[in-house]
Design a protein around this nucleic acid. Structure first.
Lengths: 336, 336
DNA sequence: TGTTTTTGTGCAATCGATTACACAATTATA
DNA sequence: TATAATTGTGTAATCGATTGCACAAAAACA
């Protein structure tokens, strides 16, 4: 039933050896033209397809790379994956995806499993909860190229492509300042994560550089949901001296804020200006469309894949490289 | 550097043979407890990890399944993939993803490549442009489980899990009729694709069942973009007798329609009611939130994976199965 | 004590390719 | 014409596991 033609089958049919068939198929110069032609034709006839597993075992190259993200259906990550796939596909690599669900344990198991499957590299955006980096070190020790994207850990020799979150925070804040906003609130994320810490720092620096002192009351740490955004804006507007602008480190936070503000009679942007972060697909469709920092996830995926390609094969000759993608503020009605 | 410990290394260290080590690791009852313990300890010590490639070659089971979708960063597909991954991961399978870019050729090459990589099954949502099904037949002929999701082709013996598009179209239209709408326009997609044809048929049936004759002027075929939605609504509102409701077969079409209507002074839902299709993440955040048919992509992915699991291994004992997921209208402000 | 079972390992083939080395036949060179 | 170089294929090892068969040692049984 499963018509698995092997080179042995071809060899038998032609009274040759597998070695000759293999060489003929690989266009080895030592094989006569006549034989080559014969083999090629027979192969086609018998519907021969090489078994990549056998090849992989022999050559020690599986042609698979593993990609680990928290969740694949988050637009940001799925777009990065698309970038990776489109860069690696033409080179003959297959992309194996898996999710960490933001759990360190799961991330560790997944990586072990990928290593067992002999992937040639691992591209990962580490989970929020990952503290220990042993599972990542193991990858490096085995000499398997490891590349971080968006969320990284500091491991010697491991390359990364991340977004310039500091500049992102800075630009967004500066943008609001230049529009004349004087009390700019910041909805931050969990600042034990580098990305949120950096966005926060950018926010602080921008304020200071423009002669404004950061106010602690105006900085909240929330999760990336519309609900948290609603709670946050509610508490902000209850202040004696409420903000006249919001810089949210996530688009969902901005969304929640806008929803609540609209429902409570505030006008955006005239009463309060809002800037989000990540340029999620929905931001441009909102009413008003939300200004946001585009993180060019497609580009991030591409670059990460390119880094892998540079490293693979060159067992030790490569050195750590860090790509930092520049911020790109998409100004929309919510802040203009 | 790459500390690849094999069972031979362990065997050497312990003055045993690879066979014994293999059996010990696999808990074969013929191996003495003492030896087992020794081997297990040494394996741990030497940091042994089985080479799944070798195993795969020997057993003819790669533990990989291929998933082919048009684009992985479309929310609908990435969510399906998430469902697939979450169902297959616990069973030890890895998910290899690839994109067809809606091109038949690319789809064919991808499938060939996946077959060469010895995947144990292929789950696919066929590209829009796919007419020829030879590459799909080949999968079946090789005895590899093939499962369609969302977009299928009729191939004998191939199972599928799709959404009940006819009922979806019917329910959406019925919903609008029950709200008192009398002239319901339909933004359809390319009706050479089953899904759009079915949604259209559901629309027509609902109208007829409620004593309304479908009007050709009110049916347009558009692409799934906001721009097309804008053009479509523009032409509709220019009719002598414009519609009082829109049933769009895509959320993007609905989005475009709403955008234009709001900009031109119409109120939604009081002037015109709108229902979309697919329940894209953005629909619930819009102003007004858009009613839409939820297609439960997570569930679709899960079911597709389960179908694969049922088939794999049972070379011929399984029979074609078709799962049709029921429609689930999410009513939001755009139609209430 | 002598035979039969059971236990614990080793030998060697296998999965499907690639490839270093060997060698006969042919051709080129001196 | 003798020798060297080239050409075309075959032999066998290898990648890292698994597994049927063989067989010695130990245990069980008569």
């Amino acid at each position: 039933m499963t018509n698995k033609t092997t080179i042995y089958d071809i060899a038998n049919r032609l009274n040759l050896t597998a070695a000759t068939v293999s060489r003929a198929l690989n266009n080895n110069p030592r094989i006569s033209k006549a034989t080559k032609k014969l083999v090629l034709e027979t192969a086609r006839e018998m519907n021969y397809e090489p078994n990549k597993l056998a090849l992989a075992l022999k050559k020690g190259r599986s042609n698979n790379v593993g990609v680990v993200v928290p969740y694949i259906n988050h637009s940001f990550f799925s777009t990065i994956i698309r970038g990776i796939e489109e860069e690696l596909h033409p080179k003959g690599y297959h992309v194996i995806i898996s999710q960490s669900h933001e759990e360190e344990d799961r991330e560790g198991q997944t990586i072990k499993s990928l290593l067992n499957a002999q992937v040639e590299g691992i591209l990962i955006s580490v989970s929020r909860s990952t503290k220990n980096t042993e599972h990542l070190n193991e990858v490096v020790q085995k000499g398997i190229p490891l590349v971080f994207f968006d969320r990284k850990k500091d491991i010697n020799g491991v390359s990364s492509v991340i977004f310039d979150d500091y500049q992102g925070g800075y630009q967004a804040t500066k943008h609001l300042i230049e529009l004349g906003c004087s009390r700019i609130a910041h909805f931050s994320g969990d600042r034990s994560l580098e990305i949120y810490q950096d966005r926060y720092q950018g926010y602080v620096s921008a304020l200071k550089d423009h002669g404004k002192e950061p106010v602690q009351d105006l900085v909240l740490e929330i999760r990336s949901t519309a609900e948290d955004g609603i709670q946050a804006i509610k508490s902000q507007m209850a202040l004696k001296n409420p903000p006249d602008a919001i810089f949210s480190s996530t688009d969902y936070g901005a969304l929640g804020a806008i929803t609540w503000l609209k429902n409570n009679g505030f006008n955006i942007p005239s009463d309060i200006r809002v800037v989000g972060f990540s340029n999620e697909p929905f931001t441009e469709f909102m009413d008003p469309p939300i200004s946001s920092m585009d993180q060019s996830p497609l580009e991030m995926g591409r670059k990460a894949a390119q880094m892998f390609l540079e490293q693979v094969g060159k067992k030790s000759a490569w050195k750590e490289k860090r790509i930092v993608l520049p911020p790109n503020l998409i100004v929309r009605k919510s802040s203009s």
